[in-house]
């Protein structure tokens, strides 16, 4: 295995210079292209002409993996399919171009919106648990509360990779609600459907629409 060190020379294709260039290995902080964090001080090859990072050697992967895991929090849960239909419906109201791949973005924005509401004293998180417990059946209280299909329904996986800031907000909101992670996400999706579709909150809809224009 060729083990590169700082100062070593190599060749690479530079997309900025549009050709084959000489490169030098050096250590840089390199961001992830989805904006979620960066790998600090990893060995990369840099174009000798434009100074752009053009290559990452195999030996840098363990450091990149560790940085990625620190920057991204994975949320995995299984929900009755109708909850995801509700989420998709709310997204579709904002933009008809929304697809399942945009769920993370919309939920992240909504989590941030809820957190700001809560900090401003306008939130309703504290009442979620109460609402859930006054529903008919403790075990399936949310499904009753939101009139989810009473028959056995197919469940689907919701997988979200959130940045550390949004993940922290989600944790805080969930703690305040006193609901389990899955029940909190169910409740949040139904609340989002309410805030976007049933009784639209103008400020929220404006924010989501602006982001959707740029990102969807």
């Amino acid at each position: 295995m060729k083990f590169y060190q700082e100062g070593d020379k190599s060749r690479a294709i530079c997309s900025h210079c549009e050709g084959l260039v000489q490169t030098t290995f050096t250590r840089r902080n390199v961001p992830f292209d989805d904006g979620l964090g960066e790998a600090k001080g990893v060995l990369v090859s840099v174009c000798d002409v434009c100074d752009q990072v053009v290559g990452i050697p195999a030996q840098s992967t363990p450091a990149i993996k560790a940085a990625r895991e620190a920057a991204v929090v994975s949320i995995e849960t299984r929900l009755p399919a109708s909850y995801l239909d509700r989420l998709d419906q709310a997204m579709h109201v904002i933009t008809t171009a929304a697809a399942t791949k945009h769920r993370k973005m919309f939920l992240s924005l909504y989590i941030d919106f809820l957190a700001r509401e809560q900090r401003a004293g306008e939130g309703t998180i504290f009442t979620w648990r109460q609402a859930a417990c006054t529903a008919v059946d403790e075990k399936t209280h949310l499904d009753h509360l939101f009139n989810v299909c009473p028959h056995k329904e197919e469940s689907k996986r919701l997988s979200l990779k959130l940045n550390a800031h949004i993940a922290s907000e989600l944790d805080d909101l969930q703690t305040q609600s006193q609901l389990s992670r899955t029940d909190f996400i169910k409740h949040m999706i139904c609340q989002m459907q309410n805030d976007v579709v049933t009784s639209p909150k103008e400020k929220l809809v404006q924010e989501l629409t602006l982001f959707a224009r740029a990102a969807v």
């Binding site: 390199v30 961001p31 992830f32 290559g55 990452i56 195999a58 992967t61 993996k65």
Partner: peptide, 19 residues
């Protein structure tokens, strides 16, 4: 003996690069 192409950032879609 391999490297990953980069354009100023790490491509998260490249699952080999991110481990």
């Amino acid at each position: 003996d391999f490297q990953h192409e980069a354009r100023g950032s790490i491509t998260v879609k490249n699952l080999l690069a991110t481990g």
